[in-house]
Amino acid sequence: MRKGLLIFFILYFILFIKAQSQCCGAGNPISGFENVSGIPYKTLLISPTYKYSISDTYFTGNEKNSISPDKMNYNFTSISIAYGINPRLSIQGQIGYFINKTKKYNISDWKPMRGFGLGDAEINVMYAVIKNIFKDFSLITGVGIKLPIGVFDQEVNNVKLPISLQPSSGSLKFNASVFMNKKFNEFNVSFRGFAEIANRIKSQNFDYKYGNLYLMSFYGSYNINKKISFVAQIRYEYRGKSLRENEQIVESSGGQLISFIPEINIIPAKSFSISVYPDIPIYKYMNGTQITNKFAISLKLTKSFNLYRNNEYFENSKTVK
């Protein structure tokens, strides 16, 4: 059984895993945020997610700019599969698909441009360095890789889409993360740090390197009852400036963003949960002038399968994802 599962996962990762794209456009999904608290031993989690995002406001520094040459939106679906290999080690992978990644222009006669298709592949491995069940404290570290095996260099009517509309980032990325969680009865407080480094894209058409990404998230969660919980997340995001050919710095790239992400989590049935969480930017500082994300909302379903014994993931893990 164990060997079969391992073969399944290896095949799955090689053949199908895809994930989110991240690009110079605003509001693309950020990787590595699924099931950050680790997965219980021999528990399999399957989580399909849908996300809608809209970006229509330009910022110069932390000031809103009145220009509006274009606006973007996307509809993104993904599926995440995670498995607890042993009590401390877990593995997680994601596949994602952009239903659309659309840019509309405020230019006469310019038609909207739409990219669509599979994004990148992502695999994360998490290890619980500290798992103290008496003090309800855990410290989990993780490393991950994002493989640019999705759709890149996409064309519409023989015209290549700009890099911001390509479904795949086109870049091999590595990430590392640390997660800490402390429980206090019905409350949970958590912290997560995340860093991602992108390799240079060197495709037939594009020569580009995304700036490094650093994230810090503070979570607080409360179990209203056994079926409903609430999570509030404050996320700080720092992205460095990008580089184009000949190491030229893209001055209007990167910046800082603070978002508020409230989440309601409902467990309507055994081993099944529904989560809804908007992504609300509360502070933006953009290098140069850039389009920024206005609003995003996600709907996530999670089904757990306990392959070890009759022990439910949702009852144990409470609310923090």
Partner: peptide, 15 residues
């Protein structure tokens, strides 16, 4: 003839 267009930076519209 068929015409294909690409830009390393920036955006193209039309065909």
């Amino acid at each position: 003839l068929e015409y294909s267009w690409e830009a390393d930076h920036g955006e193209l519209n039309g065909s």
